[in-house]
């Protein structure tokens, strides 16, 4: 079973996490296997991580969609993401999230994802 747990403000203060950041943990069968971070002021500081041995099972995609949900809740209408055109993992996740390509220069693509 996959669960997403958002770290609350109290825990953020204890851990010294910037209050402008929302952190989401991914748990599978009660074990934390990854985390994601959303920055309310600067979405270039978004961060997603899934433990190596848990990859290839769609958890990154679920976490990414959870991150998008967080940005939507904050009030973003869309987000822009850039990556290498060769990065099939990110490309599949982004296109699966209805991302639309808007530019490509020297094999680096930029997508806009409506929220």
């Amino acid at each position: 079973m996959i669960e997403f747990i958002k770290i609350d403000e109290e825990i953020k203060k204890i851990l010294g996490i910037d209050l402008s950041e929302n952190v989401v943990l991914v748990k599978k069968d009660s074990k934390v296997i990854g985390c994601g971070k959303v920055n309310k002021e600067d979405c270039s500081k978004t961060y997603i991580f899934i433990e190596t041995e848990c990859r290839g099972n769609g958890f990154g995609k679920l976490l990414f969609n959870k991150i998008l949900e967080e940005y939507k809740n904050i009030g973003f209408a869309d987000i822009t993401i850039s990556f290498s055109n060769d990065n099939i993992v990110i490309k599949k996740i982004v296109t699966g999230a209805r991302g639309i390509p808007v530019s490509v220069v020297n094999n680096n693509v930029t997508y806009v994802i409506p929220l």
């Binding site: 869309d78 209805r98 639309i100 390509p101 808007v102 530019s103 220069v105 020297n106 409506p114």
Partner: peptide, 24 residues
């Protein structure tokens, strides 16, 4: 895009325009 991106004299960045429904 190729001709503009590789132009030696200036940097011109090109992107697709989309409408309010995110359609090109």
């Amino acid at each position: 895009n190729f001709l503009l991106s590789t132009h030696p004299d200036f940097e011109i960045f090109m992107s697709s325009e989309f409408d309010n429904n995110y359609r090109y």
